[in-house]
């Protein structure tokens, strides 16, 4: 079954059978989100509806500003947790939004040292998530700060040093990869 293409966004599959997701709605949410975040690249979102897990990863097809952004999401990553098997607008914004920001970061030369999503350590991934979630919150996306603080603490320790690193990343806008992961040395 071909993917659905709407503007800069393609969603695969175009029709869902195991969840009550609408590819058009997903494309509209992602398109609007990309506009909010100033991401004009083509975006390809592939949703694995066979699993209810919530893993989501992204990559770019070339390290350039006009790269296509490839996002792979398990269905739980964009699911409405109040009404399972239905699409969650905020969940989609939060999950896909982080990936769009990661992809945009990857287009920068000073992120060349960042490994592929599947190769990141748990601490690297958490630090990057904190950096992305803070930027999403400032872009007007509804974000529960404490959720991300807790995630950061699980990776960087329940300590003042870990919390200080969280605050640094949360408030930042133009970090390099080495700055994103600078706190790992203190764990």
């Amino acid at each position: 079954m071909a993917a659905l293409v709407a503007g800069q966004v393609s969603v695969d599959p175009a029709e869902f059978t195991q969840v009550k997701y609408d590819a058009n709605e997903i494309a509209a949410i992602v398109g609007s989100l990309a506009e909010t975040l100033g991401v004009s690249n083509s975006i390809s979102l592939v949703v694995d509806e066979t699993t209810l897990l919530a893993k989501i990863t992204c990559s770019i097809d070339a390290p350039s500003s006009d790269a296509t952004i490839l996002i792979n999401a398990m269905s739980g990553a964009i699911e409405n947790t109040k009404h399972l098997t239905t699409l969650g607008v905020n969940q989609t914004q939060t999950s896909v939004g982080r990936m769009l920001l990661r992809a945009r970061d990857r287009m920068r030369a000073d992120f060349a040292g960042a490994g592929a999503d599947d190769d990141l350590t748990l601490a690297e991934s958490a630090a990057w998530d904190t950096y992305c979630a803070g930027r999403l919150a400032r872009a007007g996306i509804e974000i529960n700060t404490q959720r991300w603080r807790y995630n950061h603490r699980n990776r960087f320790g329940f300590s003042n040093a870990g919390d200080a690193d969280f605050e640094r990343l949360w408030a930042a806008d133009e970090l390099s990869w080495s700055e994103v992961v600078a706190g790992i040395a203190d764990i």
Binding site: Q18, V19, E49, T50, T51, L52, L53, A54, K55, S75, L84, T85, L122, S125, N154
Partner: peptide, 30 residues
């Protein structure tokens, strides 16, 4: 809900890892 609630074995990084199964442990990515 017919989706698979368990992590497919093929997705796991290492069969020896604590997070190899479905148990909730801190070293799971999620």
């Amino acid at each position: 809900d017919t989706r698979n609630p368990m992590e497919p074995a093929s997705n796991r990084k290492s069969a020896k890892s604590r997070s190899a199964g479905n148990r909730l442990t801190p070293d799971r990515p999620d």
